[in-house]
Design a protein around this nucleic acid. Structure first.
Lengths: 204, 204
DNA sequence: TACGATCCTATCCGTTCGGATAAGTTACCT
DNA sequence: AGGTAACTTATCCGAACGGATAGGATCGTA
C-alpha cells in the first residue's frame, strides 16, 4: 500500500513514517510542502492514499486539497490537521476529500483510519464531527435583519455611512437607523466597537 | 532517563513515545493537558526532562510553562510547539525554560535535543532563532511613537477620544492630533479603519 | 382584514470626528 | 548652542455621527 504524507512538521512526519512502516505492508513517501506533494503526485503516482496537512506551506486553505484531488486522477486525498475546525472538515469532505484526520487522534486509530480510507471509504472521527458548532453560525448574525447585516458588512470595511448608503442604494438616514439598531443588538456603543465585535465574531 | 511529554495531539504523542523508547534508555510518560502534566509533576517527580506543548488545554500561553518550572523544583522544562514564533521561544527561554523545540524539527534532531537538554544544556534550533523577525515586530508599530500606540490601543477598545484622553491624562485635542497622524501612518481614512487595521496586524 | 415585523424616508439636534493651524515644552544628538 | 523629534495644548470649522421622533410601504400571518 503506497501512502504519501505531506506535513511541514518534520517531527510528526518522521515518527509517523516509522510508525506506519512498522505496521508492515505500507510504503510511505513523506514531504514537507504542498508543492513537493504536487510534484510527487505528478511523477510518482498512483498512491493508495494522499494525506495533506491543512497548515502547510502552499496549501492556501482548501485550495491545495482541491487541486490535489483534481490532479490526482481518482487518487484518494485526505486532510490532516491539528487546528482545523469542524467547518473546515465538512468543507473538505464536501470538496471530495476521502477523509479528515485530526492530529488529536491516537496513533492506533490513525493507522486504522488510513487503512479505511485507502480502501475507498470516507473517514472522519464521529465525536469531532458531531460536536456542536461553537455557538452555531453566530449569535450575532441571528438577531440581525438582512439590511442590518449589509450595513454591518460595509462598516467592517471601514466605510462611512454615506458610502454604505450609496452601495446599498438607500438614503443616508436609513443607514444611520440600521446602524443605531444594530449597535443595540450587538452591544456596541459606537461604530468602531461594532466593527470590532463583528470581526471578533468572525463575521465577513 | 525519565521524560514527561505533554501534548494534546495524540497522534504526535503516541508516535513520539514509540520513537523515543526505541532509542533505549528512556522511559516516557505522556499526557494530553497541562493539568495532567502538573499532576504528574506533583506525584511522579523527578523527571530528567519535561516537554510542554505551547498550544495545549490549560497552558494559557507561557503561564503553564512558568508554573511548571516553579513547581518542578529544579526539574528541566522545555517548550515544544508547531506554531510558536521566535518571540515566544525567546520569552520561554527568558522565563527559564531548558529549551524550545519546534515541531518542524526532524525526529533524529529531536532525540538529540532531548538528550542535550536532559543533560542540563539549553537548547534552541539556531536557524529558527536567528531567522529575521518577520517584518520586524510589526510594520505598523515600528513607525508609531509610544503615544500613538497608546492612543491606537484605546481605539482598538472602541473608546472615544475623550475617554482615551482621560485614560492617558492628556487633553482631548492631543488625542485627536495623535489620531490624525496615526491614520496617515497606517493608511486609514477614519477611526474604524484604523482599528480594523491594527487588529488585522495582530496588535493588542 | 388587521396586526406586526421589517424596511425605508425624513427632520432635528447635540456630540463627536477629522483636519488645519499655531505654538509651547521637553529631551536628545551634534 | 542649535537642531530635531516627540509630546503637548489650544482654537476654529466643516463634516460625520448618534439618537429621538414620526411617518409610510411592503409582506406574511393570525
Amino acid at each position: 500500500m503506497r501512502i504519501l504524507i505531506a506535513d511541514d512538521h518534520d517531527l510528526l512526519r518522521d515518527t509517523l513514517v516509522m510508525f506506519l512502516e512498522n505496521e508492515g505492508s505500507m510504503v510511505i513517501a513523506a514531504v514537507g510542502t504542498f508543492s513537493q506533494a504536487a510534484e510527487r503526485i505528478e511523477t510518482d503516482a498512483p498512491y493508495d492514499l494522499i494525506l495533506l496537512d491543512y497548515n502547510m506551506p502552499g496549501m492556501n486553505g482548501l485550495d491545495g486539497l482541491k487541486s490535489a484531488i483534481a490532479m490526482g486522477d481518482g487518487q484518494k486525498v485526505a486532510l490532516i490537521s491539528g487546528e482545523a475546525t469542524k467547518q473546515i472538515a465538512e468543507a473538505a469532505l464536501e470538496a471530495g476529500a476521502s477523509g479528515f484526520v485530526p492530529k488529536s487522534l491516537p496513533a492506533k486509530s490513525f493507522v486504522n483510519a488510513v487503512k479505511f480510507m485507502a480502501m475507498g471509504e470516507q473517514y472522519a472521527p464521529i465525536d469531532f464531527m458531531t460536536a456542536p458548532d461553537e455557538a452555531e453560525t453566530n449569535p450575532l448574525a441571528e438577531n440581525l435583519t438582512d439590511r442590518e447585516l449589509q450595513v454591518l458588512k460595509g462598516l467592517t470595511q471601514g466605510k462611512a455611512n454615506k458610502e454604505i448608503a450609496r452601495d446599498l442604494d438607500v438614503s443616508e438616514p436609513t443607514v444611520k437607523l440600521h446602524m443605531k439598531t444594530l449597535y443595540r443588538k450587538v452591544g456596541a456603543a459606537n461604530r468602531t466597537q461594532a466593527a470590532l465585535i463583528a470581526r471578533e465574531a468572525g463575521l465577513f
